[in-house]
Design a protein around this nucleic acid. Structure first.
Length: 189
DNA sequence: AACACGTCCAACCGCCTTACG
DNA sequence: CCGTAAGGCGGTTGGACGTGT
């Protein structure tokens, strides 16, 4: 038994969106704004699940999307942010106007990752591959005691569990270890 | 021309977090 | 405080497209 599906799958379309579906979704969001994705499909006359509508809007139809190739600056910023935040694509995307988390995630996996590996840099640790192979370091894993989201809004990275943005005034992550402060000048949370 | 293989990216899935009654 | 619904996120997939043979 899993959790109940987010929508009635028998009556929803899947796969690539058609031009007509896009137009319906854009028209509805323009008229009513974002939000209430659950009820949007029926209100907009779409045979899609709400999640699918949200994803389509955020990743493709939003008017403020930049699209096109990533600039060198964006490229470097993504690498810097990833070294600090890890695979927190939504947080990285928040620092790149006009880019989506999905777009950055894809770009990372298809371009940057390969480029770093080509330079002999581990794309996970951002250290030289030889160091990463020989050095004793804790395995990357989820923190046993997850930090609440409001704590993550504040700043800092736990070196043990790699949880980011632990409250700046505190000296310990919820997993029990000390954390590194943000590197000056890298980010201005 | 036809096929195999690799790359890219839109979309889906399932879990986690948050809001609310 | 607890349970539930909805939103949000990251990992993964599948198909379209490009390139090499």
């Amino acid at each position: 038994m899993g959790r109940s599906p987010c929508c009635e799958k028998a009556h929803t379309n899947k796969g690539a969106w058609t031009r007509e579906e896009d137009e319906r979704l854009v028209a509805h969001v323009r008229a009513h704004g974002e939000g209430c994705w659950r009820s949007l499909p029926s209100a907009a006359g779409l045979l899609r699940c709400g999640k699918s509508c949200r994803l389509r809007w955020i990743n493709y139809l939003r008017p403020d999307l930049k699209r096109g190739n990533f600039s060198r600056d964006e490229d470097e910023l993504i690498v810097k942010l990833h070294s600090l935040l890890g695979n927190k694509w939504s947080l990285i995307a928040a620092r790149l106007p006009g880019r989506t988390d999905n777009e950055i995630k894809n770009y990372w996996n298809t371009h940057i990752r390969r480029k770093l590996l080509g330079r002999g840099i581990d794309p996970v640790t951002h250290r030289p591959l030889t160091d990463a192979a020989t050095e004793e370091r804790p395995p990357a894993r989820a923190c046993a005691k997850p930090v609440k989201m409001e704590q993550l809004q504040q700043g800092g990275i736990c070196f043990r569990c790699s949880i980011l943005r632990v409250r700046g005034a505190a000296t310990e992550c919820s997993c029990g270890s000390n954390f590194l402060g943000l590197r000056a000048g890298m980010l201005d949370f």
